[in-house]
Amino acid sequence: MKITGIESIVVNAQMRNWVFVKVLTDQDGLYGWGEATLNWKTRAVTGAVEDLAPLLIGRDPRDIAQACRVMQKQSYYRLGIIGMTAISGIEHALWDIAGKALGVPVWRLLGGRVRDKVRLYTHLGLGDMSAVYETFDAGQLTERAQAVLEAGYDALKVVFIPYAGATASPAALRHVERLGRALRDAVGEDTEVMVDFHGRPATVSASLGFIRALEPLAPMFCEEPIQPGDTEGLVQIVAASRSPIATGERLVGVREFADLLQRRAAHILQPDLNHCGGLLEAQKIAAFAEVAQVGIAPHNPNGPLAGIAALHYAVATPNFVIQEAMPGSVPWYHDVVRQPVQREGGFWPVPDLPGFGVEVDEKEAAKHPFQQEVLHAQNALLEDGTVVDW
Rank of each mutant, 00 (worst) to 15 (best):
D335C: 06
M84I: 07
E192V: 02
V148A: 04
W18Y: 14
G99R: 13
T122M: 04
M326W: 07
H299I: 01
N302I: 05
F288P: 05
A67Y: 01
V148Q: 01
V235F: 08
H267A: 11
V11R: 01
W390R: 02
A365C: 15
D384P: 03
V315P: 04
R178I: 05
R338F: 05
G112S: 11
T42E: 08
A316N: 14
T46Y: 14
W40R: 14
A266E: 05
V252L: 00
E177R: 15
D361V: 12
H198W: 12
L217Y: 03
M326P: 01
W348E: 05
D128H: 07
R59D: 13
G111W: 00
M84V: 04
V193A: 04
H123I: 07
I3L: 08
V315C: 08
R200W: 01
R263N: 13
H267G: 11
I211V: 15
A164Q: 13
S207L: 00
T122K: 03
D116V: 03
P201C: 06
P318M: 12
T317Y: 03
H376W: 15
L251I: 00
E224H: 11
S329C: 13
M129F: 13
E256C: 05
A316K: 08
E91I: 00
D128N: 10
V158C: 15
R178W: 11
A258W: 07
M15P: 00
G89A: 14
F20R: 09
E177F: 03
L56E: 13
Q270T: 01
L109W: 09
R178M: 14
V330D: 05
T85Y: 10
R144P: 00
F356Q: 03
R59E: 14
T386G: 00
A44Q: 12
L375E: 15
E189L: 09
A151P: 02
F356C: 03
K284L: 07
T25Y: 04
I285T: 01
R212I: 05
I6M: 00
F197T: 05
V252I: 13
R108P: 02
A145P: 02
S205I: 09
Q66D: 14
Q323D: 07
A325P: 00
R144V: 05
G233F: 11
L280P: 08
I268A: 04
T191W: 06
V104R: 12
V374D: 12
D272Y: 07
L375V: 14
D96P: 06
A182C: 12
E224P: 11
K100T: 07
R174L: 11
A206W: 07
L38I: 11
V114T: 09
D361M: 12
L38R: 07
E383D: 15
G295Y: 02
P318A: 12
A172F: 10
L375H: 15
